[in-house]
């Protein structure tokens, strides 16, 4: 994925190697990748939080149930934060939604990103009962977007800048550090998740089958429980395991990247339709997959330059 002349100029000296690493890490990426992340990452996070924020009074204020201060070294209560007054609870809820949507729209991108990052970090630490994978990832993802050039294209900020200066040409490429971060994070997370599964029961027990019988069950998962034979669930399990453990390889090699993208999107589609509330996690991960690894032509169709 080398771009530009800089990579060609660099030799084998330490300076040359450093320049190559710097170019790979920070070199320009299509603006549509960063814009896709900026639009869909906050939307998935706000979507996840919505069903909780509508009960902000019971979540954040003394009106609801809260785990008392347990003190000491307890991973289930990493930090005790006291409840906040009702007006503050609703203010936090409103600001979270507004800053998330504002970031997605690319309006005051840096400011709304910083605010959304702080609020999602607060909400995650406030209460272990509402800390899920999506909320634990949210502050880090939003921070990465906040420090990037994510608002420079396909955004309200870009539209306003063009209104002020009609001669301004929208950039087709932007500094790529944030895109690289998401690419590396994604394959690392899949790989770690695959290893955790292999160290758990995935090599010896029917894990996928076993997870389809509780209150996460949807009409589709119940239909699958009835119609898909046992070996079908085994096949799904092995495919998932192979995809996740091998993700760094599948996405590094050019000829396996597209099939891996399709398998990954298929996996998250299945998660979304089989496990009810997990749909927001599935949407978040699907957005990351598309933004990070979809061919540029696909992204150009999804975000046409006009």
């Amino acid at each position: 994925m080398k771009r530009g002349a800089e990579a060609k100029r660099s030799g084998d000296s330490p300076e040359g190697a450093r320049a190559r690493v710097a170019h790979w890490l920070f070199g320009p990426q299509p603006a549509s990748r960063l814009a896709f992340l900026r639009i869909f990452v906050p939307l998935a996070i706000v979507g996840f939080l919505a069903s909780r924020l509508v009960h902000a009074d019971l979540w954040l204020s003394p009106a609801g149930f809260h785990v008392p201060d347990l003190g000491g070294d307890n991973w289930r209560q990493p930090l005790y934060l006291p409840t906040i007054p009702l007006w503050a609870a609703w203010s936090v809820a409103a600001l979270t939604v507004l800053s998330g949507l504002s970031l997605a729209a690319g309006f005051l991108t840096r400011f709304s990103g910083a605010l959304f990052c702080a609020l999602t970090a607060y909400l995650t630490l406030f209460d272990r009962l509402e800390a899920f994978t999506v909320t634990k990832l949210a502050p880090v993802f939003v921070l990465a977007l906040c420090i990037s050039q994510a608002g420079k294209r396909f955004s309200v900020d870009a539209w306003l800048a063009r209104r002020r200066d009609p001669d301004r040409k929208p950039p087709s490429e932007l500094a790529g550090g944030t895109v690289r971060f998401f690419q590396l994070f994604l394959v690392t997370m899949y790989s770690a998740s695959g290893i955790a599964k292999a160290r758990g029961d995935w090599l010896s027990k029917a894990v996928v089958w076993s997870q389809l019988h509780d209150d996460y069950q949807t009409a589709i998962s119940w239909w699958m429980v009835h119609t898909v034979p046992g070996w079908g669930f085994s096949a799904l399990q092995w495919l998932t395991l192979a995809f996740e453990i091998g993700a760094p390889l599948w996405f590094a090699l050019k000829w396996t990247r597209k099939p891996a993208l399709v398998v990954g999107l298929g996996m998250h589609f299945m998660i979304g339709i089989l496990f009810g509330p997990v749909i927001w996690f599935a949407l978040l991960m699907s957005a990351l997959l598309i933004a990070c690894f979809a061919p540029e032509a696909w992204l150009a169709k999804l975000l046409p330059s006009g």
Partner: peptide, 22 residues
């Protein structure tokens, strides 16, 4: 502990459920 919260994201469904718990 607070920092650990944000990195505990990849151990997703590693074990088979023996029972559905209510």
């Amino acid at each position: 502990l607070p920092a650990r919260t944000f990195i505990q994201v990849s151990q997703l469904f590693p074990h088979a459920a023996k029972d559905a718990i209510e």
